[in-house]
């Protein structure tokens, strides 16, 4: 499985870089989380949460040409075909991996039109931990209410959400609609989800979360609607509306623990109206605690 993952990653790398990555020892291969390329600096990788040089014996400098080559390969030499993703600073890759991009943003009418002069790239190797939500789903019971996964960046919210979606769909036979605005949950490439999200799951990509939720509720009549990262008031308004339609919600939110969640103004409406009856707090070590909230209005 790791070898397959590595092959997918290598297929978008320029040949000289692919050769280095394919020579990684098996233990690093398994733990590979990210490849980081910064123009003019040595290429590094993140393995087991630690950033280190890609090769200690043959250090490789990242050049502009290498970055250009990498971005061209990742977009199949067609950045216009992935313009919307580029606006959001990433490129989706086959296998669910993704390329995060940094450079000079071109802003038109107050909106990022594209990113040019790419200066650094973060290739995130996708990892799907099948079964990681089993214990949580058991704890939630047979007929769970709305679930919110709260945790800091890198705490595994999306991974847990993805497996919850998969298990709700396959294990509990529920229809799940996923609004995957940034392609992080299902990682759809040309209509094909690259991650296992379940047999009864419908994925809507490339649409803002609030519009996506409304669209899914209207057209796919899901039992559940899942979204990753509540970041705007519009998302919360759409959730409230979806809740009125009898759809159950599954979402993630950024916060460093319970206190931080209570403090954040963005989530005030969610807290007051008690939209989510199951709050799952994740720490940075992939552990979670479930807190039940009495149902709101």
């Amino acid at each position: 499985m790791y070898q397959r993952k590595l092959r997918q990653v290598c297929s978008v790398l320029p040949p000289q870089l692919a050769a280095m990555v394919s020579q990684l020892p098996p233990e690093q291969e398994e733990q590979l989380e990210e490849l980081r390329l910064r123009c003019g600096s040595e290429i590094t990788m993140v393995c087991g949460g630690r950033e280190q040089p890609l090769s200690l014996t043959r250090p490789m400098l990242c050049t502009r040409d290498l970055l250009e080559h990498l971005v061209n390969l990742a977009s199949s030499y067609s950045t216009y075909a992935v313009e919307e993703c580029l606006r959001q600073g990433y490129l989706p890759l086959e296998g669910g991996h993704r390329l995060g991009l940094c450079g000079t943003a071109v802003v038109q009418d107050g909106r990022i039109a594209t990113i040019k002069d790419i200066s650094s790239v973060n290739l995130r190797v996708a990892g799907q931990h099948l079964g990681c939500a089993t214990a949580l789903l058991d704890a939630l019971g047979p007929n769970p209410g709305n679930v919110l996964l709260v945790g800091p960046p890198g705490s595994g919210k999306t991974t847990l959400l993805r497996d919850l979606v998969r298990q709700l769909s396959d294990r509990l036979d529920q229809r799940v609609g996923v609004v995957d605005s940034r392609g992080e949950i299902a990682a759809t490439v040309r209509g094909q989800p690259q991650m296992q999200v379940g047999r009864r799951t419908d994925v809507l990509t490339g649409v803002p979360k609030d519009q996506g939720m409304e669209l899914l509720v209207r057209t796919m009549s899901p039992h559940w609607v899942a979204v990753d990262e509540i970041t705007a008031k519009a998302d919360i308004r759409a959730m409230v509306r979806a809740g009125y339609c009898g759809v159950r919600l599954l979402a993630t939110a950024h916060a460093f623990g319970r206190e931080d969640w209570q403090r954040r103004a963005l989530y005030e409406k969610l807290r007051k109206r008690k939209i989510f009856t199951n709050l799952v707090f994740l720490d940075g070590k992939r552990r979670w605690t479930l807190e039940r909230v009495e149902e709101g209005c």
Binding site: N72, S75, T79, Y80, A113
Partner: peptide, 10 residues
């Protein structure tokens, strides 16, 4: 310039 910029430029 092919493949490098946005759709309009292409």
């Amino acid at each position: 310039g092919l493949g490098q910029y946005d759709l309009d430029s292409q």
